[in-house]
């Protein structure tokens, strides 16, 4: 267990150093930040939209519609989609896709630079790798994951509509229960959760990339560990955050 705690501690230290480095002047990372944002969006948007649509159509869409269909209350599916698409599956799938697609690319990139000793060369040149490499990736992932949340929710709702159409139901009831049950708390909770997801993924993937070692297998293994740690960390944070949000906001527990 010793190495596990050591790695978690190193990641926390890296988080603190990244945050401090992001706030303190100078700010040389502007171009790299834009590049990373564009890179992440270009890499992730198609997997994200396909994944959110597929997951929301299968899991909450058809399963819940099957139950509601028996009770003759398919219009209630909109209220159910506040729980799934907005509060739970939207952020989680966004995080899984960003970790699996953009996070792995970041680890592979940084790991390759570490293996080719470019990171050491940067340090010799007096360039701080945290400020110039980690900070732009961290900010880009936080920003892009938060942005993607909106699209994940939209496509989740689109698959809810598809599920209603599969059951030949008119959409008036879906939208009525959707809008009457959704609250601002749900949306900001979802967005805040996604921002933290982006931060977790960025720190884990940058850390694993920058500490890659051991030749050809090393970079691959770094990617492997980075994505495993990201997934477990993200889903555990999702559980803790949801538990706290639901317990402290009783207005989310009423049906309208």
């Amino acid at each position: 267990m010793g190495p596990v705690f050591e790695q978690v501690g190193s990641m926390v230290i890296l988080t603190a150093r990244t945050l401090r480095s992001a706030i303190r002047a100078p700010y040389p990372y502007g171009d790299e930040l834009i590049e990373q944002i564009v890179f992440t969006i270009r890499l992730c948007w198609l997997p994200l939209l396909a994944s959110t649509f597929a997951l929301n159509l299968g899991a909450p869409g058809l399963q819940a519609a099957g139950v509601l269909h028996v009770f003759g209350s398919l219009d209630r599916l909109g209220g159910f989609f506040v729980l799934t698409a907005v509060r739970w599956i939207g952020p989680l799938v966004t995080a899984v896709v960003v970790a699996g697609v953009a996070g792995t690319a970041i680890t592979a990139d940084l790991g390759a630079r570490k293996i080719r000793e470019e990171l050491d060369a940067l340090q010799v040149l007096g360039v701080d790798p945290i400020k110039n490499l980690v900070v732009p990736r961290f900010l880009a992932l936080v920003l892009v994951t938060t942005l993607f949340d909106a699209f994940a929710i939209l496509f989740g709702l689109a698959s809810g509509i598809a599920a209603e159409l599969i059951y030949n139901q008119s959409l008036g009831g879906f939208f009525a229960t959707l809008f009457s049950n959704s609250s601002v708390t749900d949306v900001w909770g979802s967005v805040l959760m996604c921002a933290v997801f982006g931060g977790i993924i960025a720190v884990v993937c940058c850390f694993k990339g920058m500490t890659a070692s051991g030749g050809a297998a090393g970079v691959g293994l770094a990617v492997n560990q980075a994505v495993v740690i990201s997934l477990v960390g993200v889903s555990f944070f999702n559980y803790v955050f949801t538990a706290v949000l639901l317990a402290t906001h009783p207005e989310l527990q009423t049906i309208r």
Binding site: P47, A54, V93, A108, V223
Partner: peptide
């Protein structure tokens, strides 16, 4: 070594999409 890292990242991206599609079709 760089190629191994890139291939690893690519396989993960492909798998994520595949898992969701299989889940939907299965349901």
């Amino acid at each position: 070594p760089v190629g191994v890292g890139t291939a690893t990242a690519k396989s993960m991206a492909f798998n994520i999409v595949a898992v969701h599609i299989i889940g939907m079709v299965g349901t």
